[in-house]
């Protein structure tokens, strides 16, 4: 049955409407999960709040397992789902820079919008920096264009690289996620016990 647009069940003109609805729902969930607070987000790096890790890991494993069941039941054709191409070295550097922005600014691009939506000044400051960064990146793009497109590995998945099925990868990720939940819970407990400046729960 799915994906609906490539299969022609609904026309491509609906893309923006669907994107708007999903975007609004995503923003609402981010805000209601407490992601509009930079303390919650930066907490990952200081070890007192792992809500970011928990929320995103949960979303990932639920989507992974759910999509594989959908594929098995014939509700979605996974071969038609777009897989983002991998450029390993540029993506590693990009991830590092984004992590740096995360810990310095206390937001990621999406959460800065949720912070702006509820009128937080630090959110607006972050967004200003965000647009400045986009502008500088675009202007300086010819300087690192070669690196940006280097190491193209194509539309590959982890399963294809490791020569295992997607189901094994999904199972491994669920185990890793649950182990991460437990370990971060222990770290959180230890760090919070030593903290005096703020209380939790």
């Amino acid at each position: 049955m799915g994906p609906l647009i490539p299969q022609g069940y609904i026309t491509g003109q609906w893309e923006f409407v669907i994107a708007l609805l999903i975007g609004a729902a995503f923003g609402f969930l981010l805000e209601s999960s407490g992601f509009s607070s930079s303390r919650n987000i930066a907490g990952v790096f200081y070890g007192y709040n792992f809500v970011v890790l928990r929320v995103f890991f949960t979303a990932m494993i639920v989507a992974m397992v759910g999509l594989l069941y959908f594929d098995y039941l014939g509700w979605i054709d996974m071969s038609m789902v777009f897989v983002l191409p991998t450029f390993l070295a540029p993506m590693l550097l990009g991830g590092f820079i984004m992590g740096l922005g995360f810990v310095i600014g206390g937001f990621c691009p999406g959460t800065s919008y949720t912070a702006c939506a509820i009128g937080k000044l630090d959110g607006f400051a972050f967004l200003g920096g965000f647009f400045l960064g986009v502008f500088l990146f675009s202007e300086a793009f010819p300087l690192f264009e070669k690196f940006y497109y280097s190491g193209d590995m194509g539309n590959i998945t982890i399963g294809e690289v490791l020569h295992v099925s997607d189901r094994v990868v999904a199972f491994a990720f669920v185990v890793i996620a649950i182990a991460a939940f437990y370990v971060t819970w222990l770290i959180e407990k230890k760090v919070r016990a030593n903290r005096t400046e703020s209380k939790f729960e």
């Binding site: 397992v65 014939g74 999904a170 199972f171 669920v174």
Partner: peptide, 29 residues
């Protein structure tokens, strides 16, 4: 630890483990 988290974790492992036991789909839609 909240018991709900334990239950949900167990459910996720069961669902993911179930994927490994499913036969491969050979029938094309």
């Amino acid at each position: 630890m909240n018991k709900n988290y334990l239950f949900l974790s167990l459910l996720m492992i069961l669902l993911a483990g179930g994927l490994l036991l499913l036969p491969d789909r050979t029938n094309y839609s």
